[in-house]
Nucleic acid binder design. Structure first.
Length: 649
DNA sequence: GTTTCGGTTCTTTTT
DNA sequence: GAACCGAAAC
C-alpha cells in the first residue's frame, strides 16, 4: 500500500518529532496542555505505518469516544485508508471487542448485555430489596455502586473498602458485601456485564488464558495509550500485560490533568512508569502554541503547589496580549449579566460566540446563567448537558425491546418493557418473569402465548404490537434492522404512550427519530446495542462542530471541556464551596489537589482571554444569603498575574 | 395487593 | 429532570 511521505521535520517541532520518532521499547511522553499531544500521537501512528508496520498490529487506546474518533479521523487524513485496519478505541471498546470473541473463556455467553449506570442502579436496588436492606440509613444504589466500582478499578476488595467507607456510620459492611455478592450473581444470571466487568473480564482473558495472552501479544506489536494519567489499575495492568516486558508501549499523558481519580483513575500509573519500565525513554512536550503567555503564567503558577508530579513549566511562544481577569460580582445574577454583556462586547470586537465558552464545576452552577440567556435572548447558546442521551427514559423504554430480542435473559429489559403497559407494575412483571422460568425469548410462539395469558386486559394493545414484531422478527430479518423494530414499536404503541406520558413528548419523539437514524450505521442489532451502551452522548464532536458553524456560546462543565480549546473562556463560581467543591475538600488533601488540577484544565482551555468570575454571595436553600470567599485557587496566586476588577449592575 | 399519582427534594465529574 | 415517599385508586 502506498503511503504518502510525511515531512516530520517540517510539520512537528523538535520535542514532538523526538517523541514521534522514538525508538522501539517503552516510551513515556509527558505532554503539557496545548503542546500538541494528539498531534504527536497521530503522527506517531503515521510514522509507525510509514516504517512498514501493519496497521492491524497497532493498538491505539483512548479514554473517551471523542478522543478515539478525533485521532482515527486525523490519522486517516494523514496516511489515508492505510489506517483502516488499525485497532483504535476506548479501553471499554477494546475489552468488549475481545470479550465478544472469547466470552466463554470468562464464563459468559457472547450475546451478553452491557449494563449502563441506570441499569446497574436498578439492579443494585433490586438486590438490596431482596436482602431486605431497605432501612432508611442503608446506602442508596449510587453509593453502593461507587464502592463496588472503586473496588473493581483499584483491584481492592469490597469488604475492605466498605469497612473503610462506613467506619463511622451505622451501616454494617457485611450487608454491603452481601448486596455486592447478590449483584455479582444477578449479573451472571442476566448474562450481563457492567462497565467495570468489561475491563475486569478483559483482564481475566489475559491473566487466565496463556494462549490468548500469547496471541494478542503477538498481534499487537505497538500499543499507544492516550491520556495515560486517567488509566485505572485494571487498565494499566491490562496494557502492561499486553505489551509484555520490553514491549513497544508508548503512553502519553499529563499528570497535571488527572481529573478522574473519583472513578478509580490512578495517576501513579504515569508517575511510576519510569520505575516499572527502567529502560523507558521519556520525552517532555512543553511548548504551547495555544495560549498567550499571561494565561500560561497563571496556569504554571496555579499548579505549582501540587505535590508528587512531573514538574514542568509550559513555555509560551505566542506574543503577550492581556492578563486574565478576576471579576468580582455581587451575585449569580450579576455574574450572568456580566458574562452576557462581555460576550456581546467581545463579539463587537470581532470574536464569534462560537469562540467563547463558559465553564463551571457542576451542572447546576449554570442554572442562573441559562435562565438569563434564555430570557433576554441576546446571546445564542448551547449547553453540554449532564443528561446522557442514551440513558433518557424514552430511549431506554424503546431499546428495552431490542435488548430483550438480543439477550432473552435480560430481566431488566423485560421488566422495563412490561411496566410500560397500563395496570402493570414491578410486581406483576416479576411474577411473569418467574412464570417464564427466568428467560423470555419473544421469538418463540410458546413463550408469547404463555406471557399473553398473564397480562391484564388493559395491556393488550401494547402487547399486540410486540407480538406482531416478534412474529415478523425472523421472517423480515429485523435482526439486521433495529430502526425498523423501533419504528413498528412506536407506530403501534410508543408514540401514543409518549404523548400521554411526557409533557415534552415532541422533543422526545425527535430523539427517537434521531436514534433510528443513528442505528443505520450498524449492521446488526448486537452491534448497535454494544455501541449504544458504550456511548454516553450521541455525537459529541459533531456537537462541537455545530458550535463553530452556528456561532453559539457554549456552556460546559470543565470535565466535558477537557481536550478542547476556545479563544475566550469564562469560568464561573470561582469561589470557596463551589470550586473547589465542598465535597471534594472534605474528602482529603488528594481531593483538593485534584480540584486544583481541574482548575488548571479550565485555565488552559483559553487561548486569548480568560475571566474568572467571583460572585460574593449566593442564596442558600432556605432563602438566606450566604457570603462567598474567592476560591483559594485565586488567593494562592501572586497578585500581579491577574487583573482584578469589579462589575456592578 | 398493586398500581398510580402528587408532592418533595436534590442535583460532580463518565465509560 | 427524576428519584423518592406516602396516600389514594383500581
Amino acid at each position: 500500500m502506498a503511503v504518502p511521505r510525511i515531512d516530520f521535520t517540517a510539520e512537528l517541532n523538535a520535542e514532538q518529532q523526538a517523541a514521534v520518532q522514538a525508538p522501539d521499547g517503552p516510551v513515556l511522553v509527558i505532554a503539557a496542555a496545548g503542546t500538541g499531544k494528539t498531534r504527536t500521537l497521530v503522527y506517531r501512528v503515521a510514522y509507525l505505518v510509514e516504517q512498514g508496520n501493519d496497521p492491524s498490529r497497532i493498538l491505539l487506546l483512548t479514554f473517551t469516544n471523542r478522543a478515539a474518533h478525533e485521532m482515527l479521523e486525523r490519522a486517516r487524513q494523514l496516511v489515508g485508508d492505510g489506517v483502516s485496519g488499525l485497532w483504535g478505541g476506548t479501553f471499554h471498546h477494546m475489552a468488549n471487542r475481545l470479550l465478544r470473541r472469547h466470552a466463554g473463556a470468562v464464563g459468559y455467553q457472547p450475546d451478553y448485555t452491557i449494563l449502563d449506570s441506570d441499569d446497574t442502579r436498578r439492579l443494585v436496588r433490586l438486590c438490596s430489596q431482596e436482602l431486605k436492606l431497605t432501612d432508611k440509613h442503608f446506602p442508596k444504589p449510587d453509593v453502593l455502586l461507587s464502592v463496588f466500582g472503586l473496588a473493581a478499578s483499584t483491584e481492592q476488595s469490597v469488604a475492605a473498602l466498605a469497612a473503610d467507607r462506613f467506619e463511622h456510620s451505622r451501616v454494617d459492611p457485611g450487608d454491603v458485601v452481601a448486596v455486592y455478592e447478590a449483584y455479582e450473581k444477578r449479573k451472571q444470571q442476566l448474562n450481563a456485564m457492567d462497565f467495570d466487568d468489561l475491563l475486569l473480564n478483559g483482564l481475566r482473558l489475559l491473566t487466565e488464558h496463556d494462549a490468548l495472552l500469547e496471541r494478542y501479544r503477538e498481534q499487537f506489536v505497538h500499543i499507544l495509550v492516550d491520556e495515560y494519567q486517567d488509566t485505572n489499575t485494571v487498565q494499566s495492568h491490562w496494557v502492561d500485560l499486553l505489551a509484555g516486558p520490553g514491549g513497544n508501549l508508548l503512553v502519553v499523558g499529563d499528570d497535571f490533568q488527572s481529573i478522574y481519580s473519583w472513578r478509580g483513575a490512578n495517576y501513579r500509573n504515569i508517575i511510576t512508569f519510569p520505575e516499572r519500565y527502567p529502560d523507558a525513554h521519556v520525552y517532555y512536550l512543553v511548548t504551547n502554541y495555544r495560549s498567550v503567555p499571561e494565561i500560561l503564567g497563571m496556569a504554571n503558577a496555579c499548579i505549582a503547589g501540587n505535590p508528587l508530579q512531573f514538574q514542568k513549566t509550559i513555555q509560551p511562544v505566542r506574543d503577550p496580549l492581556e492578563r486574565p481577569h478576576c471579576v468580582s460580582l455581587d451575585d449569580g445574577h450579576a455574574q450572568a449579566e456580566f458574562i452576557i454583556g462581555e460576550a456581546q462586547r467581545l463579539r463587537s470586537e470581532g470574536y464569534a460566540y462560537g469562540d467563547m465558552v463558559v465553564l463551571y464545576r457542576a451542572h447546576y452552577h449554570a442554572m442562573e446563567l441559562q435562565l438569563a440567556l434564555a430570557r433576554d435572548q441576546r446571546v445564542p447558546f448551547v449547553i453540554t448537558s449532564g443528561i446522557r442521551f442514551f440513558e433518557q427514559s424514552h430511549i431506554k423504554d424503546v431499546t428495552a425491546l431490542l435488548r430483550l430480542f438480543a439477550n432473552p435473559g435480560d430481566e431488566l429489559a423485560f421488566q422495563r418493557l412490561l411496566c410500560l403497559w397500563p395496570r402493570l407494575g414491578a410486581k406483576t412483571a416479576q411474577k411473569c418473569w418467574q412464570a417464564l422460568g427466568g428467560r423470555c425469548d419473544l421469538r418463540k410462539d410458546a413463550t408469547r402465548e404463555r406471557l399473553a395469558k398473564g397480562l391484564p386486559a388493559a395491556a393488550r394493545e401494547g402487547w399486540n404490537t410486540v407480538e406482531m414484531i416478534a412474529a415478523d422478527f425472523d421472517r423480515h430479518e429485523l435482526q439486521k434492522d433495529p430502526a425498523e423494530i423501533i419504528h413498528r414499536f412506536m407506530a403501534g404503541f410508543y408514540e401514543d404512550f409518549a404523548r400521554e406520558t411526557f409533557e415534552n413528548s415532541d422533543r422526545r419523539l425527535e430523539d427517537l427519530a434521531e436514534l433510528m437514524r443513528y442505528t443505520h450505521q450498524f449492521a446488526t442489532l448486537d452491534a448497535f446495542l454494544s455501541e449504544m451502551a458504550l456511548q454516553t452522548n450521541l455525537d459529541a464532536e459533531a456537537d462541537a462542530a455545530v458550535q463553530r458553524e452556528t456561532d453559539v456560546l457554549r456552556l460546559s462543565t470543565i470535565h466535558q471541556a477537557k481536550g478542547l480549546e476556545w479563544k475566550v473562556v469564562f469560568i464561573c463560581w470561582v469561589t470557596e464551596g463551589m470550586f473547589p467543591s465542598l465535597r471534594s475538600v472534605n474528602e482529603s488533601e488528594e481531593g483538593l489537589a485534584e480540584e486544583r488540577r481541574l482548575f488548571y484544565v479550565a485555565v488552559t482551555r483559553a487561548k486569548d482571554a480568560l475571566y474568572c468570575c467571583v460572585p460574593r454571595q449566593r442564596r442558600g436553600r432556605d432563602g438566606s444569603m450566604q457570603f462567598l470567599l474567592p476560591s483559594q485557587f485565586l488567593q494562592e496566586l501572586p497578585s500581579d498575574l491577574m487583573t482584578a476588577s469589579r462589575f456592578r449592575r
